[in-house]
Design a protein around this nucleic acid. Structure first.
Lengths: 377, 377
DNA sequence: GCTTGTACTTGAAACGCATCAAAGGGGCCG
DNA sequence: CGGCCCCTTTGATGCGTTTCAAGTACAAGC
């Protein structure tokens, strides 16, 4: 069962090698009969073009690579979904690699994609951003997602500050008097969230705010221990609203509080940031602010296209996209819930959108008008 | 910024082209100093091997392709996760393509992968299985996932009959007297689930069973309409246990019942099949039987490896893997819940495993000992 | 000093295809 | 009938690697 190649098709069809190639790539150049004859032969022989050879001979193919840190995080999947749709719209393929939370693998796949003559590559990198210096020399369009690079380059990031602001405003609206922010602002993303929270609360000097740090990794256990600590305070020193810097933290807090007999949301309201489904499995639903992953993926591909199409464009472009406040489930499970919504989109939530923010030096990001509910986990 | 190629490295390092190639592929053949020199040059120049050329010249690279129908279904992600881990274990890369529920795209990516000289390809195909005849002529190892092909070939599938049996046994254990099965057994998978249910109930002639079909597509709306129909019956004609053939159906049923004022799980217990997180968002948690996606992905890669390693092996192998009964959340939300579990694995569930079944003509599937909790959405 | 062996290194030949300048074929006009 | 032009097809060339038979250098043994 030897592999059938283009020359086999040519011989069999009685045409030349170049003609078969044209049938594949520029069918409009061929006479209809010739094209038909060749296509029949291709099918009969079961010919499948060798992509490697095509790429080698013809330069980049129309495909993008996307390296994600994990596949089981809703945010990353939203990115993948947005990127996929946008890529297909432009006629590009999208290949996804799972870096599995491993820097080395991330680097590995990135190089792999760049070496495959992909038309462009996107990464949602883990914490650090110090690429191998060589990386910047590669003449392949690349876009970083969900980071804030200081180096020149393209990136698309969620407006984490806006996320903080939104969640703080939710607290204000709920009449909070004493707020705790749970977790360590270990990464830029989290720092910005805290900043947003502070900015929003600056207008409300009557509201007390407190940031509790419980450990380096912001694990659920950290959240649980902070929750325990809160629960053990005298009732009048407890907050009435807790904000987890991540959903995982928030989820840990909720567990601790309810374990200690404190009602959530009866006595303390808890909210998170991330829109991370992994953290939703508790019996107490969690209110969270989800970054617009779908939009980020979409915009990422658009930046790739930009780099491909107008080569001599600016070498740096940064896009920040506002967050959609997404109350995945209302804090109070017994609150009025529109059952109809449950039947259709299958996400028990109220979605309100927030206009995209303009980055001072960047282009205006399109306002977020749609949230891809279906694709969201 | 011209692309630096292997000959540039060779010239710069003062060695021959073949030596650089050896440095990359057979470093043990080189004198340590030479190797060091070449590596330094590679880094200095920012050389990145052209994967297309490598593949073209060297035959298949160590990478697998996986085509999934969607990315936002927990089952597919489990497959991806299992496949990824197993592939890495053997030193292979895994590239994922999202067919986005589109037959044409599925075919497209499949061909793409096969044409890229991948070492092997896996697909979780949508309904139909009539590949283009040419497909079977391609000398690339391929494994189908979650299907039951009649044609010769390799596949790994969940034991859907076992899923039905498990869910029926749950109903029996809960003391059900009157069971309805909701949905149309449109695909083989669903047919087998119904079969399993019937087999389990055959031992309990006292339990009444009824199958309600509401439409071709088993949508949430279908579930809702069946739920409504059930709710409108006189109380003594209502079932006390409803089984959705899919979680989406079950979710629709729950919505309808609670909308009509019937308590779930107070008056009617509802369970589903799939372990589909999309269907979990309701305020009433759903008990579901999840197929062991992680195991399926793992086994898929193992079958790929088998085909790669012992070429002259059997041309057909079929593996059926038993389902893990995974009660994502107990039917009664107020039931005893082990809070500790909530903090750690972040999946409020009880996992019980079921020994793998032996396919008459196949090899024995390894018993399922672990469920990849973390990777499960 | 010559031979044999060992340890590296070399470079030319594929790999399968896209490209493109050039050739071929046919119709039309003069 | 000849000349032109347009539409279609041809096939040699090169893409960046890997591979492998052939080469080189050096050391040990005689």
């Amino acid at each position: 069962m030897a592999k059938v190649k283009i020359s086999d098709v040519a011989r069999e069809a009685g045409v030349s090698l170049g003609t078969v190639s044209n049938a594949l790539n520029h069918p409009e150049k061929l006479r209809p009969e010739t094209l038909k004859l060749i296509n029949e032969t291709i099918n009969r022989l079961g010919y499948l073009p060798n992509q490697s050879a095509r790429q080698l001979a013809g330069g980049a193919t129309k495909s993008f690579g996307l390296v994600l840190p994990r596949l089981d995080h809703g945010f990353s999947l939203q990115i993948a979904s947005g990127a996929h749709n946008e890529a297909r719209k432009h006629g590009y393929d999208l290949l996804i690699a799972n870096a599995d939370n491993d820097d080395i693998l991330e680097d590995h796949y990135l190089r792999y994609f760049m070496g495959t003559q992909m038309s462009g590559v996107m990464v949602q990198p883990m914490a650090s951003l110090d690429w191998h210096p060589a990386m910047t020399k590669i003449p392949v369009p690349i876009v970083h997602l969900d980071v804030h690079c200081s180096e020149p380059g393209y990136y698309v990031a969620a407006d984490n500050e806006a996320q903080g602001r939104i969640i703080a405003e939710l607290a204000i609206a709920r009449g909070a008097h004493r707020i705790v922010v749970v977790g360590r602002a270990a990464f830029m993303q989290l720092t910005l969230r805290v900043l947003g929270i502070h900015k929003a609360l600056a207008l409300h000097p009557d509201i007390k705010i407190e940031v509790i740090d419980a450990g380096e990794w912001n694990t659920a256990a950290d959240g649980y221990s902070i929750g325990t600590q809160i629960a053990e305070r005298p009732a009048d020193e407890r907050p009435d609203f807790a904000i987890g810097l991540t959903d995982v933290l928030a989820s840990g807090v909720i567990s601790a509080l309810t374990d200690k007999g404190i009602s959530v949301p009866g006595q303390i309201l808890v909210a998170g940031c991330d829109g991370n489904p992994l953290a939703w499995s508790g019996s107490v639903p969690l209110t969270t602010v989800a970054p617009p992953g779908y939009e980020i993926g979409r915009k990422g591909v658009q930046l790739l296209m930009e780099q491909i199409e107008d080569k001599p464009a600016a070498k740096t472009k940064r896009v920040r996209i506002g967050s959609a406040a997404r109350t995945v489930t209302t804090v109070t499970a017994t609150e009025d819930i529109n059952r109809q919504e449950l039947v259709r989109p299958f996400l028990l939530e109220r979605v309100s959108t927030q206009k995209a923010e303009q980055h001072p030096t960047g282009p205006s990001a399109a306002p977020i008008t749609d949230i891809n509910l279906g694709a969201y986990l």
